Amino acid sequence: MAPVGGVIAAELQAHQRREDLRIARLNFEILGTLHSEEFEVNTTTLRPGRTIELVESVMMSRGRPCLVGRAWRLATSDTSQVRVHHDPALPGPEAAEPHQGISRWPGGYIQSLEVSVLAGHAPGHGRGWLTNPYPMVDGEPTDSLIKLVGMVDTANGVAPVLDAVPGGHSFANVDLQIHLHRLPVGEHLGLETTSNVGPDGVGLTSAVLHDIHGPFGRSAQIQTIREIPPAQ
């Protein structure tokens, strides 16, 4: 889901782009399997407006919709004199140590990541940084928003509170929501994650999102918790 989120975010950003608006919220609904093969993206403006727009992209695979992404694009203005945030900044990537724990997950995307963690990183409470050396689309420049959004879905896997092994539990997310109080910069995504599991098969991973200058937003993923049968 992570790189797919980056691709869809790029489509939402590029659609009838206006320099006086910027993406403030991204919402992804995962409708089915995201097949690693050819796909099609159709993007439309659901709610046009002078200062507020809602744009939607539908990803099609094997003739069926598999993901819907929506973005609220809001008018920008100079609010630098009143800016405020209350999330403390993470120590930078230079303060983190390389981490191999995420390598438990398969796939080329995971293999592409450079992962480092900070003091206090533990199951259910992640603190660390991600980056990778690749553009979102081969041969095309990738701006910071798309680069970092393309790694946010990793939040539920960097410090899971459950073990997705035989006899344990899987915790696939069915959505991803990202709220941005400013646009990020750079190529490093900082994650401070918290994972919670309810009593009835539903979990939640939420994260404060950071770049090298501090926090820039938050993400949330709702999860379906499933028992994995023990190995036979």
Rank of each mutant, 00 (worst) to 15 (best):
I212Q: 08
T51N: 11
G63V: 05
L145R: 03
A9T: 13
A122G: 11
W72F: 12
H188N: 06
Q221Y: 03
H99L: 07
A95N: 10
H169Q: 15
A155E: 10
R226E: 14
A10L: 08
G128L: 04
D20Q: 10
H15E: 05
I8W: 00
R127S: 06
G217P: 01
W72C: 08
S57H: 04
A9W: 00
G6K: 00
G198N: 09
Y109M: 15
A172P: 12
T76W: 06
E187T: 10
K147P: 00
V158L: 08
P184L: 05
G167I: 08
C66S: 14
N42W: 09
M60A: 05
S80H: 10
F171Y: 04
G49A: 06
G92A: 02
T205D: 10
H169D: 08
E114I: 11
Q111I: 09
A231F: 07
S61I: 04
G63D: 13
S112K: 07
T51P: 03
S80M: 13
G120I: 07
I23R: 00
P160G: 07
S61V: 08
I52H: 07
T45I: 12
R218D: 12
P65M: 09
P199G: 10
A119F: 09
R17Y: 11
V174F: 05
A89K: 03
I23K: 00
V55E: 01
V202W: 04
S144F: 07
L191P: 00
G167P: 01
P48H: 12
N27L: 14
D163I: 10
S206D: 14
R104E: 09
G139C: 05
Y109N: 06
H179S: 13
L118G: 01
H15P: 01
M136R: 06
K147M: 11
N173W: 03
T142R: 03
Q100P: 11
V41H: 04
S77L: 15
H35R: 14
R18P: 08
L183W: 03
H169W: 13
L90D: 00
E19R: 15
R127H: 08
F28R: 06
I52P: 03
P3A: 09
K147Y: 06
E187R: 02
W129Y: 14
L74C: 13
R62G: 06
G69I: 00
L204N: 00
W129H: 06
H86I: 12
P3N: 11
I212W: 00
P3L: 06
G190L: 00
N173K: 07
M59R: 03
M60K: 03
E40Y: 12
R62A: 13
H181Y: 12
Q223A: 06
G139I: 05
L67N: 05
R182G: 05
S57F: 08
P166Y: 08
G49P: 02
T51D: 12
D20F: 05
S36E: 15
G167M: 04
W105Y: 15
D87E: 15
P98R: 11
D143R: 02
L145N: 02
R104T: 11
N173T: 06
Q100N: 15
A9R: 01
F216P: 00
I228Y: 04
A207C: 13
I23S: 02
V174M: 09
V158T: 08
D163A: 14
T45Q: 15
G157K: 01
R218W: 10
E114D: 15
R73H: 10
R22F: 14
